[in-house]
Design a protein around this nucleic acid. Structure first.
Length: 551
DNA sequence: GCCGTTTTCGGCCCGACTGTTTTCAGTCG
């Protein structure tokens, strides 16, 4: 079965092999195409069907040809042939931190080493001693990296919701301990990607050394990887890598742009700068040696003739061209959210928990709360909240903060399956249902506030699955909920949903701890999808319950 | 291999850090 992620994987494989073969620019070209394919909200076969493959950034004649071949046969001959030329283990050596294409190639060609296992054997036999370019330190470094790699080093990307509290704690530690004036988390965390590979922290301070000392001593930090005059890299206890960079205030905006990325976005604005006779780096926008911008991000973009681009959109998907035409539409923000359509009470909730939740809602200035009282699953309707609490909830609701009951309905695991199989939407529609609860989608008027929630689509890039669920939401007249669940596809889902006219619902995290990722991360995902306030159901001042229903 | 309202050829981001070099190569982000 062909799929977008598999196609991207093949191109990344080609890139690795070309790297080892010493090609200069082709590897990056194939990787660029792979990244573009990963960020598609549409199935490749559908794009090909329209004859539109060339519209994918980074896809030209040669890659279009290979995509067609892949879609027709599931294979790419060029990749198969490359794999015959280069042993798989040589490409795998590229996965070892600190080992790049040049070194991997030298090991292979000069020493006949064809993979990490053989490299370790060679190290044990002392075969690297005396080889030009490999001193004592380098050999020790390689050995430790190979061993970590062989032990299954934790190089996997972390879901952003898990990185969120860690990032908050590090920022807090730096602010309190190092007297840092300004601390920001940049990188893919700031762009709101579903997963992060590392964290990039930027600080302004007069005392870089002190900031590094404080940072290294934080309890989350396991070891210092490298430390220079402006940059420190550490490894956290949980295996996450964190880069800390000290920048001067006059360059903070430029550094923030630079380290927020994405790489493709940076490349695009740099080449634009070049056309204008300017140069962009992390210190500013430069004309010759003169810095013409750098203090704020707005300055930097303005100096390039661009409107400021929200970090969540910096993926080289047309945002630079749009920013050249004029200001971008204002994306949904935290202040736009007037209510929450999906609030859970704990399973051991009592009247006090209900009161605390309502107090939290009022404190946030929310006008309404939709509290989950039933979950609709395979057996029809399951109650999640006892009748006594439902009565308490109704009575406690007032004019400042209205409450109403909502049901949950989504691609949850099939509870009857021991392996937790996911069921396609059709299965839910066709299922025998007892229809015994208060909410009976899709005929009930209140079905309009049904949310198709975010569980169950774990495979990154499963755009077909996403499309099926969005179609399902449309049939129900439901909004699509975006949030930092276990799933990793939410911004793809949300983008596809809003492009097809569906509305989005955003959880606010009301009633959760202040460090909870729910609200902030949901918002980032929605912004990443390009959501405007008008496209978000709970940005409406009134709750969208029956009576308010549109025809 | 891709890309182009100044290009269909000749470019392709750029600086920090490390280690092994005595002026630079490789890797990384």
């Amino acid at each position: 079965m062909v799929s977008n992620p598999k196609a991207a994987e093949i191109f990344r494989g080609i890139a690795d092999l070309l790297d080892v073969m010493g090609e200069r620019f082709k590897p990056e070209a194939y990787r660029r195409a792979a990244r573009s394919i990963d960020s598609l909200t549409e199935d490749l076969a559908a794009v090909a069907g329209r004859g539109d493959l060339r519209s994918i950034p980074g896809v030209g004649d040669a890659i279009e040809e290979k995509l067609r071949e892949y879609l027709a046969s599931g294979r790419v001959d060029y990749y198969d042939r490359l794999q015959k030329d280069v042993p798989a283990g040589v490409a795998e050596m590229l996965r070892i931190p600190g080992l790049g294409p040049k070194t991997a190639r030298r090991f292979w060609v000069e020493l006949g080493i064809e993979g990490p296992a053989e490299l370790l054997t060679a190290l044990d036999a002392g075969r690297l001693v005396g080889v030009k370019g490999f001193g004592e330190k380098k050999i020790a470094q390689i050995r430790s990296a190979v061993e970590a790699h062989r032990a299954g080093g934790s190089s996997a990307r972390l879901p952003i919701a898990e990185a969120y509290p860690i990032a908050l704690a590090l920022v807090r530690g730096l602010r309190e301990g190092a007297g840092a004036e300004r601390v920001e988390v940049a990188g893919s965390f700031r762009r709101g990607r579903e997963t992060v590979g590392d964290l990039d922290l930027l600080v302004t301070t007069e005392e870089a050394e002190r900031a590094f000392d404080v940072f290294s001593a934080l309890p989350q930090v396991k070891e210092v990887r490298l430390r220079g005059g402006t940059k420190e890299t550490v490894l956290l206890q949980n295996g996450l890598q964190v880069d800390l960079r000290v920048v001067e205030p006059a360059a903070f905006g430029a550094a923030l742009v630079y380290f927020t990325g994405s790489k493709d976005h940076n490349v695009q604005i740099r080449s634009l700068a070049k056309d204008l006779g300017l140069r962009v780096n992390e210190y500013g926008v430069l004309r010759g040696e003169e810095r013409v911008a750098g203090r704020t991000e707005e300055d930097v973009y303005q100096a390039l003739g661009l409107a400021w681009v929200p970090p969540e959109l910096r993926e080289a998907r047309g945002e630079v061209e749009a920013a050249a035409r004029g200001p971008l539409p204002t994306l949904v923000g935290a202040d736009d959210l007037r209510g929450d359509l999906h609030v859970h009470l704990p399973s051991n909730a009592d009247p006090d928990s209900v009161d605390r939740l309502l107090a939290a809602g009022r404190e946030r200035g929310l006008a309404y709360l939709g509290v989950v009282v039933v979950t609709v699953d395979r057996d029809g309707v399951r109650s999640a909240l006892p009748d006594s609490l439902r009565t308490h909830l109704r009575n406690a609701s007032g004019p400042q903060l209205r409450t109403f009951e909502v049901g949950e309905f989504g691609p949850a695991e099939d509870p009857s399956s021991p392996t937790g199989d996911r069921r396609p939407p059709e299965w839910w529609v066709a299922r025998p249902t007892k229809r015994s609860g208060p909410l009976q989608p899709p005929s009930d008027a209140r079905g309009r506030v049904f949310l198709v929630a975010h569980r169950g689509l774990r495979d990154l890039g499963d755009v077909r699955g996403v499309a099926a669920w969005n179609d399902f939401a449309r049939k129900l007249g439901a909004a699509v909920e975006v949030g930092p669940g276990e799933d990793r596809l939410d911004s793809t889902w949300a983008r596809q949903a809003r492009e097809s006219g569906l509305r989005i619902s955003l959880p606010t995290g009301v009633g959760e701890s202040p460090d909870s990722p729910t609200g902030p991360i949901a918002l980032r995902f929605a912004r990443r999808a390009g959501a405007l306030p008008s496209e978000v159901l709970n940005a409406e001042p009134q709750p969208p319950i029956s009576g308010a229903a549109k025809p």
